[in-house]
Amino acid sequence: MKTHLALESPDISRAIVRIAHEILENNKGSENLLILGIPSGGVPLANRIAKKISEIENRDVKCGVLDITLYRDDVRLRPARTPQETQIPNNKVDAMIVVLVDDVLFSGRTIRAALDALTALGRPKKVQLAVLIDRGHRELPIRPDYVGKNLPTSQEQSINVKLSEIDGIDEVEVTS
């Protein structure tokens, strides 16, 4: 097994700053913006992006958690996992511009589940997708709106995103 570092801490920080700017530019500001992290890796990333946007805009941008465990399409293939609490500021997704945030975009199935989970909560005006890593191998017609880094990989490789909030360090490893 071989492991190499694909991204280091400063790379991750730069990616977050860039994504924050792109979100603002794309949506012409932070009005009605709702950043939702998908557990577990997406949650700290969503917080960081929201914080960055808040700094730039000098106003609080809403940020929450969207758990997708019970919307997955592979329930039969994986042991039960305890869902995390879904947290939506003011319980409002209707008419919001929702940016879903995840650490790695791979098959696209997680995002499909997230779209269902979101629909069960209400009817957003728009839904966009931000990911730190896009590693390819999509199995569904889903594409990200904001990408930290494209990392072409083979199916056999694994990508391990470590974030200081969870792992105590910021880095992205590729193992093959």
Partner: peptide
């Protein structure tokens, strides 16, 4: 506890 949340959602059903 997560299951209980479904009662408060717009769609009171999970596809699980």
């Amino acid at each position: 506890k997560s299951m209980a949340e479904v009662g408060g959602k717009a769609v009171k059903k999970l596809p699980t």
